[in-house]
Design a protein around this nucleic acid. Structure first.
Length: 281
DNA sequence: AAATCTAGCAACCGCCGCGTC
DNA sequence: CGACGCGGCGGTTGCTAGATT
């Protein structure tokens, strides 16, 4: 007896997922879980095969997925584990929380493999203003932009999972030079002097509204005197402090985008999480 | 400005291993 | 023990956006 195909493909949707399909899948799994992938699409009312649903959930919709560019540490881990394990992507993924085997496989083939072949090859910078596919933008809940702001006696480092998006924005619109950004565009590090002389007037209130626990109030960088107060408070602490940045910061940063609904959705989705983190901080 | 090339990555395909009957 | 069903995995494809010519 010939084994039945994994799904009856006639009449089923293929290709990129629509926002409505994502929503249905998320809602269904949220309510009932995913005990049986094959039965799930029928139960949920999706015109997809079970495999497609499983893949979409695991690689994209799962709430614990970490998006954004891979950090240098993650890349080193992949290279090291690939040396030990070979193309066992799922085994490698187990060592990188929030990353999927598919994503690791992609980053290996598009970037890391060449670097391993030729260590002299430079790190490729992410594309500027890269747009996600329409279907993928629909429910980009995991691209929260959650971040940290680390302040020590002489520098401020902002780190973001928004990767090239924030990097491109900073570079293009606020005259932040490449030297101030990390290779993967996830980190902006600046000295107090450079911040004051080069960034604060230029970036003004568009750039930064940092709401942190160290402050007990908001620093609206760019307003007269606020940046000085920011640094004087930071310097007075004389310690390294790590706190989350409010998603409002990103909303302010990107609020000139045409795709305002997209960013508003991210804001709404993450503000709640951020408040929880802040309360526990 | 248009055409072409390239990189990134979501999604598909087919095979495999394991559990069940 | 073998057939079957299912989930999981790795290889590959093909679409899209950005870069280059």
């Amino acid at each position: 007896m010939v084994r039945a195909p994994c799904c009856q493909k006639i009449g089923l949707n293929r290709g990129p997922w629509a926002a409505e399909e994502d929503q249905i899948l998320v809602n269904h799994i949220g309510r009932f879980g995913h005990g049986n992938w094959r039965a799930l699409p029928k139960q949920a009312g999706l015109l997809r095969c079970g495999k497609s649903c499983r893949l979409r959930w695991i690689n994209y919709l799962r709430p614990d997925i970490k998006r954004g560019n891979f950090t240098r540490e993650e890349e080193e881990t992949i290279i090291r584990l690939h040396g030990e394990l070979g193309n066992r992507w799922s085994a490698i993924a187990k060592n990188l929380p929030g990353r999927t085997d598919n994503e690791i496989k992609n980053v290996w083939h598009t970037n890391l493999k060449r670097r391993v072949m030729d260590p002299n090859v430079s790190l490729k910078r992410p594309k500027k203003n890269k747009q996600k596919r329409e279907s993928s933008r629909a429910l980009d809940r995991s691209d929260s932009g959650f971040s940290s702001c680390v302040i020590d006696s002489s520098t401020m480092t902002m780190e973001t999972s928004l990767g090239d998006r924030i990097g491109s924005k900073l570079e293009d619109e606020f005259n932040v030079s490449e030297s101030d950004l990390s290779m993967d565009f996830t980190t902006l590090e600046t000295s107090k002097d450079r911040w004051n002389s080069d960034f604060s007037s230029r970036a003004a209130s568009d750039l930064l509204t940092v709401s942190t626990e160290i402050s007990t109030c908001d620093y609206v960088c760019g307003n007269e005197g606020e940046i000085e107060r920011f640094w004087s408070d930071a310097l007075a602490m004389n310690t390294t402090v790590e706190t989350p940045i409010s998603p409002s910061y990103y909303f302010n940063l990107f609020n000139s985008d045409n795709d305002i609904d997209f960013w508003r959705a991210i804001l709404m989705d993450t503000e709640r999480d951020w408040q929880e983190v802040s309360q526990n901080h």
